[in-house]
Design a protein around this nucleic acid. Structure first.
Lengths: 105, 105
DNA sequence: TGCATTGTTGGCGTTTATGCCAACGAACCA
DNA sequence: TGGTTCGTTGGCATAAACGCCAACAATGCA
């Protein structure tokens, strides 16, 4: 069995993905490095809000950032996070199937 | 690009895993169906707390439950959640490596 | 130097999540 | 029927997460 502290470590990573904005940023960064301004442009949110979301992803080790002159470039560090996404999709499809069953009865 | 509503759907699944207790329950259930009492026995928490955590997992479609007489049996519905776990482990190892690098400099 | 641009940080109010206790319904047994 | 066990639900207090505004540091340009 996994211990509680082992679980806590993993939870930090999982929590970092558990927000629509952060999940979208991850998907966006799968296309390659992007500057802050491009990420900011995806949402109708305050720049400080976006900046903090990116900080959460950084502290979890999911993305990294580098400053080039005036702008900050963000990069996805761990491609396997796509697995999270795929699995979540499978769960959703699974749930839809069950709802269909319920309706057919 | 993924839309905000698509992200929200997936976030519900991911959030359900974003807690040490729930993550441990998932790991535990990978070994097969288990009664409530066995899950409850893993933690030093109130039975109502455990019951609510299980409800979160159920509502996300990650586990299912059935009543057999007096006890409730829980079952893992989506094996692919192991992917989440593996990826989280990779991220953690990645982070440790970086820390090592920093120390060596 | 004066000023605009870019992104981060601090602080605050609001919302959501967590965990306990108490109360409850359902099944089982004496 | 009365009492016991099992698990769920309601309600409440505390803690964490979110998002905005304001202030700030860092860079670039006139």
């Amino acid at each position: 069995m996994i211990t509680f502290s082992e679980a806590e470590l993993r939870v930090k990573i999982i929590k970092a993905m558990a927000h629509p904005v952060r999940l979208m940023v991850i998907e966006f960064l799968r296309g390659g490095e992007r500057p802050f301004s491009a990420i900011f442009g995806l949402f109708q949110l305050d720049k400080s809000t976006i900046s903090k979301h990116l900080l959460v992803l950084k502290e979890a080790g999911i993305v990294s950032s580098k400053k080039t002159g005036t702008e900050t470039i963000y990069r996805l560090e761990v491609p396997c996070v796509a697995d999270f996404f795929n699995c979540a999709t499978i769960v959703i499809e699974n749930n839809v199937k069950k709802q269909m069953k319920c309706l057919c009865r």
